[in-house]
Amino acid sequence: MQTHLLRRLAAELVGTALLVLFGAGSVVATLTVGGGQLGYADLGFVALAFAIVVALVVHGFGPVSGAHINPAVSISLAVTRRFPWAEVGPYVAAQLVGGFVGGLLVVAAFGTDAVDLGMGATTLASGVPYWQGIVAEALGTFILLFAVMALAVDTRAPIGWAGLMIGLAVALEILLIGPLTGGSVNPARTFGPYLTLSVFGGDVPWSQYGVYVVGPLLGGIAAVLVYDLLALTRPAERAAAEASYTAETPSAPQPPGSPGSPAPTQAPTDQD
Rank of each mutant, 00 (worst) to 15 (best):
M1A: 15
L9P: 08
V14M: 11
G15P: 03
T16V: 09
V20I: 13
A24I: 05
A29Y: 07
T30A: 15
G35E: 13
G36L: 09
Q37N: 14
L38N: 09
G39F: 00
G39M: 01
Y40H: 01
A41I: 13
D42V: 04
D42E: 12
F45L: 15
A47S: 07
A47Y: 02
A47M: 10
L48W: 00
L48C: 06
V58N: 03
G60I: 10
S65D: 13
G66T: 13
G66Y: 07
H68P: 04
I69R: 07
I69H: 11
N70K: 03
I75Y: 07
I75R: 04
S76C: 14
L77K: 06
V79Q: 08
R82M: 03
R82E: 08
F83Q: 04
F83N: 03
A86M: 14
A86W: 09
E87K: 06
E87L: 12
V88W: 06
G89T: 10
A93F: 11
Q95F: 14
Q95D: 11
A108G: 12
F110G: 05
V115G: 03
V115L: 12
L117P: 03
G118W: 02
G118F: 04
T123Y: 00
L124F: 09
L124D: 01
S126C: 00
S126I: 01
V128R: 03
G133H: 00
E137T: 07
A138T: 02
L139A: 14
G140M: 05
I143D: 04
V148L: 12
M149N: 07
A152N: 08
G160F: 06
L168I: 06
A171F: 07
E173W: 00
I174L: 09
G182W: 00
V185P: 07
N186M: 09
A188N: 09
R189V: 06
F191I: 02
Y194I: 04
T196R: 09
T196W: 12
V204M: 05
S207N: 05
V213E: 11
V214A: 15
L217D: 00
L217R: 00
G220N: 04
A222G: 02
V226A: 10
V226S: 11
V226W: 00
D228A: 14
L230I: 15
L230N: 13
A231L: 15
L232R: 15
P235V: 11
P235W: 09
A239P: 07
A240I: 04
T246N: 13
T246P: 01
A247Y: 10
E248A: 15
T249I: 13
A252P: 08
P253H: 08
G257E: 04
S258N: 03
P259E: 05
G260P: 04
P262T: 10
P262S: 06
A263V: 08
P268F: 15
D272E: 14
